[in-house]
């Protein structure tokens, strides 16, 4: 089973650390391995830390945090050998790193499956940063590489400002899904597919009602890649989808969607067919999703 890895990008002050702490706080049994560039002024909230040495912080609930310092690739090679293996890797890119380049490199590493690139933007400063002499092009390249952009700290901007910010963002990356947040408070399932998979099992709602989670029972065989591709189309407005469906040959396949990115892989043994998707409540229409699923179904001859 490849280890899912989510890249969290964004410039200094966009709220990456806050978001990661939020994920750890709500990990609820999913064992996360968080990779950060450096152990700065407490990358992890003190109350979550169980033990710390030079290279690794142990966190409540079986999660860990490691610093990768100079060599991210080596850290990833080490992490995949960890026993027991974590359920999901969350990679916090440095403020000037290009998450697109990291995603391309991760895509080549044996044992990993890219779960998506999530880039945070500080609602108050992002437009200014994007035209800065020194870092403007870096910021733009970060946003262009995102599957999901989280516009964070929206409490610092008024309603009109957010509307114009959203259209500004769409001009830069027309394909991207945009999510608004304050203090990194978001359903974890939106950031990491491992949470989405779990939500499907637990059949439980989540704490923030701006988002809609849709569960679909798909038991008949489907054209798997068509379904995955359709779920990733911009009209549906899905942030993420994950599930297991039967191929026309009767094999169970995993579908993963994040924004416009989709992947089909072998399903792990004992997976149960079915699919779960999450998106912004105002946008996502369960009826449309049913139609998409029906359109991919293999017609009985």
């Amino acid at each position: 089973m490849p280890l899912p890895i989510t890249i969290i990008g964004g410039y200094l002050g966009s709220g990456k650390t806050t978001l990661i702490n939020h994920l750890l706080r709500h990990a609820d049994g999913v064992r996360l391995a968080v990779l950060v560039n450096e152990f700065g002024e407490l990358p992890i909230d003190a109350d979550l830390i169980e033990a710390q040495d030079d290279d690794i912080i142990s966190i409540a609930g079986g999660c860990v945090c490691c610093s990768y310092g100079n060599d991210l690739t080596l850290a990833l090679l080490d992490l995949v050998k960890m026993d027991p293996q974590p359920d999901h890797v969350v990679l916090e890119a440095s403020g000037v790193a290009l998450p697109g380049a990291i995603a391309a490199a991760v895509g080549l590493l044996d044992g990993y499956l890219l779960d998506g690139v999530v880039v945070l933007a500080n609602a108050e400063t992002i437009r200014e940063q994007a035209v800065d002499t020194y870092i403007g092009d870096t910021i733009q390249r970060q946003l262009e590489a995102a599957d999901i952009v989280i516009i964070n700290k929206t409490d610092l901007v008024d309603e009109d400002g957010l509307v114009s910010l959203r259209s500004w963002m769409k001009e830069r990356n027309g394909d991207v899904e945009i999510v608004l947040a304050q203090h990194g408070q978001l359903p974890s399932s939106l950031v990491l597919q491992s949470f989405l998979a779990r939500e499907r099992k637990h059949q439980e709602g989540h704490q923030l009602n701006a988002f809609e989670t849709v569960r679909m029972e798909i038991v008949t065989p489907v054209q798997v890649e068509k379904l995955a591709q359709d779920l990733a189309s911009p009209e549906l407005g899905l942030l993420r989808a994950k599930g297991f469906v039967k191929s026309p040959q009767g094999e169970l396949k995993t579908i993963q969607v994040v924004g416009r990115r989709w992947a089909v892989t072998e399903a792990p043994p004992n997976s149960q067919p079915g699919l779960v998707a999450i998106g912004v409540k105002a946008v996502v229409d369960p009826k449309v999703l049913e139609k998409v699923a029906a359109a991919a179904a293999v017609k009985a001859d």
């Binding site: 060599d71 080596l74 090679l77 990291i102 391309a104 490199a105 080549l108």
Partner: peptide
């Protein structure tokens, strides 16, 4: 080309983990 991809292969051809 580039350290991202040189490192994971480099360790197999005898280049030390830490190039510095």
């Amino acid at each position: 080309k580039g350290p991202d991809i040189m490192t994971p292969v480099g360790v197999h051809v005898g280049f030390d983990r830490d190039m510095l």
